[in-house]
Design a protein around this nucleic acid. Structure first.
Length: 987
RNA sequence: GGGCGGUUAGCUCAGCUGGUUAGAGCGAUUCCCUUACAAGGAAUAGGCCGGCGGUUCGAGUCCGUCACCGCCCA
């Protein structure tokens, strides 16, 4: 607080400085938290394994939303006193990274094959080193309070050991197998990819219909059945979207019940251009309604044809090479690209008179997720994980509640996918990744080993002599290593499992201690788009290898979309760079926008205006703090409470007896907000929690409490009143900063560092304790202050309506109901904080100064009259003798007209009379009151309707009924008063 | 084909076990540079909560159905 706070909060001047300080102080590490006494080692730790970003390039808003949510949770739990660990890291991202580096090489005209495996992999490592530094720098700008000392990379030694261990265990358990199956093949990546990595998109293609020639039979003449076209006898009409696959056909199939083709079953068709003979078969899976109802069967290049072929024991013909060109099976079309071959073959068939027609046809086509090439189903020898045995326990973990998914509706998706899971193709024909730890002997025997030397040992045992072994050339799907992330990063498998083997791979860099202490983790936060890719696999592998669900909760956020609702992407040019937004609006502004802008599982459109609004919010708090500090410096000796506890250093409060209604009100509200926010965070309603804090700080603390405090600070009777007010101002600010810190870490920390006394006695706001419930809920104060607000608002509304200059102070008379009530507090026995303002008399008398200042009244012309019935006196009271005083000339010009019209306001349980003599537009006033009356009468009708309904009274809870009764009573009072006012206006 | 989500103010969205007069931000209108903040203050306007039907004393909220938009899976 030594330096002056500038008028505007400048995030750029704080963020990097604060982050470096936090990090250097060790606040992000659980050991430090325990050592400093913030965390209680007896409490269960709160742990998050951060979803590792790919090392492919810059971070985007998706990373910032996940970081913001996790950081919010981490900061909250850290403040709540749990040892808190957030493990960061990056993912090698197999295909994605390899593609990026290949593309870079291509620019120099070099392919990975030119370099060879070893040199290429080195290139990728160089890339990784460069981008990793960039990424962790960006993450620091994002302000994430993770434990960098535990940072991991999926290809580092420890994690590679975990991958080896996992593979070998699964292999030995018979859950990993190698086989020749139809897989999704990307001809550009020249690799197999898993089902999940195929994206289906509608393509406007063509449906090609042609004549499949039939071989003549000796009984051919007999087959000519009446009513059938001649063509159908010598041909069968077939449609396809991929004519080139004709070259791989091994059958034509029709539905067994299809009378059109019944006579053809068992006959032989001839593959065009190849003259290969294939059978015509019947299969129930043929859809008679699609195309001509006759289906060409290409088992080597179509998954459903593959199934038909297996049922009918048909041969499989693979017609394509790995790069998508056709192989010798394609006969004269060998060497052509699959799409060129499509054209060429079709033209040749047209020349041969086989073509019937082409029609426009939109159909779903699989594309490679990474390079968008059209995927070719292809028979290939690959490695697979058997999923059923892994899925079942993973389904149970969610079904029996050991893992809860937020929002819960995603559990249904999870179950559906898991229950219909298919084996996972894990081998990739890439160079960047974990190489499959299988060595082949001369006879093809497989040795699963942690190292080549271990494989050789096994081989000697197998063959009785030393033989040449060859390691499998493929690498593992990148998600295989990510699937181990929550435990591999904590040191799994630890010394116990891998220590036995020799060689470099046995080095375990992680510590099993972390695994014991911090596993299972608490929550896994990520986007719903990788529920299957990643979350499901972590659960399966986690349960399988550790016997425990890897986390208790899965929190899924939605996608951050562009303002127009489209997905942000570089190619569309609508992607916003989070770092750029941070430097323009501040980390807190962007973070708060992401945290409050959507609910779990739902996408959000990020709007700049919202970020601006939240930047303004940060500035608002900054300025509220400026105001408080300005006054703190003049008020002497603000006491600090809880000095012994360095994590709960705060300002002392004045004794209850010195607290005003406004003090009690704001303290009660603080208490309520604290309770709500705590409860909301516990139930994952982070956005609502943030919104409540926003509402509290801006609309209550700033708009009302600070305004209410001003007269007490600047008033004549300085001294004690000012001091007490300062204490409450400072206390509420300080406590609010704690509550807001997880949502807006920087501005809160920056302000906190200015707080006199506090920042000297404690380390940092981020290591302060989350406020506990103070049980300072004061319903009476909230109710009473609410009435003050109502009165003030009513006066302001009228002032605005009559264009009374904002600076002008006006006269007012408050008509209260009970002259007997003397001003002063009444304390209810047994609850010293409870305070009741009995009747409107005490309320107005005690808050006269407040009302005067908030409504800009002229204190010399304010009167309180004990005549709630407000008879004629009302109209003479407003224009009292002093009416012409001060600057009241314009308004009060005819103030001598003591009986002139005045404005009567029924609000806050009293009637307020504003003698805006000379300004009152009788007609407008009648309209205003008439409208108000109508509104009240509508509400009365509603309440009466309810209360007259016997079923409502008997069935609704008493609480609800009573509320209606109270409401009705109040409405009737107001109705009465407004009606009287109206009557007088008309008189 | 199966499943999920959305439809609330001009725009973007909240509204969690059904219960005051349905809220916020932005935008709009009027006024104000009042000694924390013009990135601000005061006030105002604007909504048969997508349609229809049902359950209930009571429905934005629960159920059914339809429409449109979007997503996932096959």
């Amino acid at each position: 607080m030594t330096q002056e706070m500038p008028k505007t909060y400048a995030p750029q001047q704080w963020e990097e400085k604060l982050y470096e300080w936090w990090e250097s102080m060790g606040f992000f590490q659980p050991e430090q938290q325990i050592e400093s006494g913030l965390a209680d080692p007896a409490l269960p730790p709160f742990v998050i394994a951060m979803p590792p970003p790919n090392v492919t390039g810059a971070l985007h808003l998706g990373h910032f939303i996940t970081s913001s949510i996790q950081d919010m949770l981490i900061r909250y739990h850290r403040m709540a006193g749990r040892p808190t660990l957030w493990v960061p890291g990056t993912d090698h991202a197999g295909i994605a990274t390899q593609n990026v580096v290949e593309r870079k090489l291509e620019e120099g005209g070099v392919t990975r094959h030119d370099l060879g495996r070893e040199r290429f992999v080195q290139e990728v490592w160089d890339w990784k080193d460069e981008y990793h530094g960039q990424i962790s720098g960006q993450q620091r700008r994002m302000g994430i309070s993770c434990d960098w000392s535990r940072e991991r990379f999926t290809l580092d030694d420890g994690l590679s050991d975990a991958v080896l261990e996992a593979f070998i265990r699964l292999y030995n358990d018979g859950l990993i197998y190698r086989g020749n199956y139809l897989v999704n093949w990307c001809p550009r990546c020249e690799s197999a990819i898993s089902d999940l990595e195929v994206e289906h998109e509608p393509i406007e293609g063509k449906l090609y219909t042609f004549r499949y020639p039939l071989r003549e039979t000796s009984a051919g003449a007999d087959m000519a059945i009446e009513g059938r076209s001649e063509a159908a006898v010598g041909h069968v009409e077939v449609s396809t979207t991929r004519p080139e696959t004709i070259l791989g056909d091994t059958a034509v199939a029709v539905h067994p019940d299809d009378v059109r083709y019944a006579h053809l079953i068992g006959r032989t068709a001839v593959v065009p251009m190849l003259e290969r003979e294939i059978p015509i078969i019947a299969d129930e899976h043929v859809d008679p309604a699609f195309g001509t109802g006759a289906l060409k069967v290409t088992p080597g290049h179509d998954p459903s044809d593959y199934q038909i072929a297996r049922r009918h024991d048909l041969p499989f013909i693979n017609i394509t090479n790995e790069d998508g060109s056709l192989n010798p099976e394609a006969g004269p079309y060998e060497g052509l690209d699959r799409f060129d071959a499509r054209e060429k073959l079709w033209e040749d068939m047209r020349a041969a008179g086989l073509v019937i027609r082409e029609t426009a046809h939109t159909h779903e086509v699989g594309h490679c997720e990474r390079c968008h090439t059209i995927v070719e189903p292809l028979q290939s020898t690959q490695w697979f994980v058997k999923m059923k045995p892994l899925a079942e326990p993973a389904i149970d973990a969610v079904r029996n509640g050991r893992i809860k998914i937020v929002p819960a509706r995603f559990e249904k998706n999870y179950f559906h996918w898991m229950e219909n899971i298919r084996d996972w193709c894990i081998s990739r024909q890439l160079w960047w990744g974990h190489r499959i730890p299988i060595w082949y002997g001369p006879d093809g025997h497989q040795f699963a080993a942690r190292s080549e030397s271990e494989a050789l040992e096994q081989a000697i045992e197998q063959y009785g002599e030393t033989v040449e072994l060859e390691q499998d050339a493929d690498v593992l799907d990148t998600w295989f290593s990510s699937g181990l992330w929550p435990f591999s990063t904590l040191g799994w498998p630890g010394e116990t499992d891998a220590a036995g083997s020799e060689g470099q791979s046995a080095i375990i860099s992680g510590s099993a201690e972390d695994l014991a202490r911090y596993y299972p983790t608490s929550v896994l936060e990520t986007g719903y788009d990788i529920l299957f890719f990643w979350v499901a696999r972590m659960i399966m592998l986690g349960v399988h290898f550790t016997g425990e669900a890897p986390f208790r909760h899965v929190y899924l956020h939605g996608l951050v979309r562009a303002e127009d609702g489209r997905k942000m992407s570089k190619s569309l040019g609508n992607a916003l760079d989070p770092l750029d937004l941070i430097s323009r609006y501040g980390n807190d502004a962007l973070r708060f926008t992401l945290l409050t802008g959507s609910t779990p599982g739902n996408d959000m459109k990020l709007s700049i205006s919202r970020i601006e609004a939240n930047r303004n919010f940060a500035n608002k708090i900054w300025n509220a703090a400026r105001f408080v500090l300005l006054n703190l410096e003049t008020a002497s000796d603000i006491e600090l409470g809880n000095e012994k506890e360095r994590h709960s250093v705060t300002f002392a409060l004045p004794p209850i007896s010195e607290q005003t209604l406004a003090d009690r009100w704001i303290l009660s509200r603080l208490n309520t907000v604290q309770a709500h926010v705590t409860q909301l965070v516990a139930s994952w309603q982070l956005g609502e929690a943030g919104r409540q804090l926003h509402e509290f700080l801006w609309s209550e603390y700033c708009d009302w409490y600070i305004e209410a405090a001003k007269p007490r600070l600047y008033g004549d009777d300085q001294g004690e009143a000012a001091r007490a007010t300062c204490q409450v101002l400072a206390y509420v600010l300080e406590q609010s900063l704690r509550l807001l810190h997880p949502f807006m870490p920087y501005v809160t920390e920056a302000i906190w560092s200015h707080l006199p006394g506090v920042s000297e006695r404690a380390e940092a706001l981020m290591t302060q304790r989350w406020p506990c419930s103070l049980e300072r809920k004061d319903a009476a104060a909230e109710e009473a202050f609410g009435r003050v607000q109502e009165i003030v608002r009513a006066i302001r509304t009228v002032r605005a309506q009559y264009n009374v200059e904002p600076g002008r102070r006006i006269a007012a008379t408050f008509h209260v109901d009970s002259p007997e009530h003397s001003p002063g507090q009444e304390q209810i026995a047994g609850n010293e904080s409870a305070y009741s303002v009995n009747g409107s008399s005490a309320l107005v008398h005690e808050n006269l100064e407040l009302l005067t200042n908030l409504a800009r009244l002229d204190e010399a012309q304010v009167a309180v009259e004990a005549d709630a019935a407000q008879g004629r006196a009302v109209f003479s009271a407003g224009a009292a003798d002093s009416a012409a005083g001060q600057d009241g000339r314009a308004v009060m010009s005819d103030s001598t007209d003591a009986g002139g019209p005045a404005i009567l306001l029924a609000a806050g349980g009293i009637t307020t009379c504003l003698p805006l003599t000379g300004m009152v537009d009788l007609e407008a006033e009648r309209r205003r009151l008439g409208k108000e009356l109508a509104d009240i009468e509508r509400q009365i009708a509603r309440a009466e309707g309810l209360l007259n309904n016997e079923k409502f009274v008997s069935k609704a809870p008493e609480r609800v009924v009573q509320r209606e009764r109270d409401k009705l009573k109040e409405l009737q009072t107001r109705q009465e008063r407004i009606a009287e006012s109206l009557a007088q206006l008309r008189a």
